[in-house]
């Protein structure tokens, strides 16, 4: 029964620790202390998904996570995910369909796609739309994104 001293976690595969307040937002800490600026802040209320990260493999909005809750977890942001083979598949699919416009929702969208494909390696369009439903995009109308995820699932057969 200790007061939290130092919050330890794994960030993009590396040991990390935080000594600030346990009530601080993961979003702010990732951006400020760890310079993971691919984690975007669109609303700070869990309503847009731009700050989505994976915590122990699950999609989470980092604006709604206090640092005390990440103790002992493994966090993946776009900065870590972009080094993976799965990212390369999504990257190609998004490139081929020009699914990136302003780019602000994209890192969160990519991690939502990863979470979706982990759960459903062969998703239906409905499953894709459900999987991306917490990530707002104002530019694309979602067609290109949904189609890119569908294409990545096919191209990346066996990866997920």
């Amino acid at each position: 029964m200790d007061r939290l001293q130092e919050i330890r976690f794994v960030l993009n595969g590396k040991e990390a620790s935080y000594t600030g307040s346990a009530a601080d937002r993961l979003l702010d800490v990732l951006r400020e202390q760890f310079r993971c600026t691919g984690v975007k802040c669109g609303c700070r209320e869990g309503e847009c998904g731009a700050c989505a990260v994976l915590i122990d493999g699950l999609l989470r909005n980092s604006c709604c996570v206090a640092m005390g809750a990440v103790e002992g977890t493994s966090i993946v942001t776009i900065e870590g995910y972009r080094e993976t083979a799965r990212f390369a598949v999504l990257d190609r699919a998004f490139a081929q369909l020009s699914a990136v416009q302003c780019g602000f929702c994209t890192p969160g969208m990519i991690l939502a796609a990863e979470a979706l494909l982990s759960a459903h390696p062969h998703p239906t369009e409905e499953e894709i739309r459900e999987g991306l439903s917490g990530n707002l995009c104002r530019c694309t109308g979602y067609n290109a994104i949904v189609n890119a995820v569908k294409s990545a699932a096919e191209e990346g057969e066996g990866l997920w």
Binding site: R35, G38, I78, A95, S98, V100, C102, G103, T106, I110
Partner: peptide, 24 residues
């Protein structure tokens, strides 16, 4: 004929620097 957009890579990988991303 569509090409890969010039800003695709930096944006999708989170490397693009938006105004909030400069160090404080």
């Amino acid at each position: 004929q569509s090409v890969v957009k010039k800003d695709h890579g930096p944006k999708i990988s989170g490397r693009s620097i938006y105004v909030a991303d400069y160090p404080s």
